[in-house]
Amino acid sequence: MQPRESAAQPVQRDHSWPLAIEAASGERVGLCFGCGICTGSCPLASAMDLLPSRLMKAVQLGLRERVLGATAPYLCVACETCAVRCPNGIDVARVMDAVRQASLTTGRPVPRVDIQRFHRWFLRTVWMFGRAHEGLLSAGYSLQQGRLLQDLSTGLALMRHGRLALWPHTVRRQREVRRLFRAIAQRGGR
């Protein structure tokens, strides 16, 4: 074995981080052996900057900064196809979820603010009405994003198909929903 000069500056690593993600997600990240089936079955893989299998590897290697700075976890729609296919039974979507949460709690700039806003509007309507109100969600999100008319035709089509109601649906026990939100807030969630 001959010592050689390394080519570039190596990346920062945090060896305790994989354990933190394991604890947060409840998934044994170490079991992943990099087969790539999650990437192969992910419908959004083509749009991701860090493919699911690479992300798993990065978590294993403790490349915290790299993973937290990736937009991939924000693109994950939790379709769970990866979880169904993983030969080691790892729920990759849950790991993505845990990474997303870690990303939001560190105070660093959020890689996909637009997606975060979408989620916020969703939660806002749930808090207000006990159920998601697509009309308010889409209107509010579009305004916040500065997309006034671009999605209008999509919105009209959705309305025609009965998917976008102008008037919100409500629930009877509104208060309990709000209690849920308060409980989470008390535990430090956002």
């Binding site: 074995m1 001959q2 010592p3 050689r4 000069e5 080519a7 570039a8 690479r54 290697l61 790299r66």
Partner: peptide
């Protein structure tokens, strides 16, 4: 996995620094 070739080995402080290029993730030590 040593996908892109063998690692670089440098003796340091009585031990070793092992640097390997992991495709897609960059060099790790």
């Amino acid at each position: 996995r040593m996908e892109a070739g063998p690692p670089a080995l440098v003796e340091a402080n009585g031990g070793w620094n092992i640097t390997l290029d992991v495709p897609g993730l960059g060099p790790i030590t």
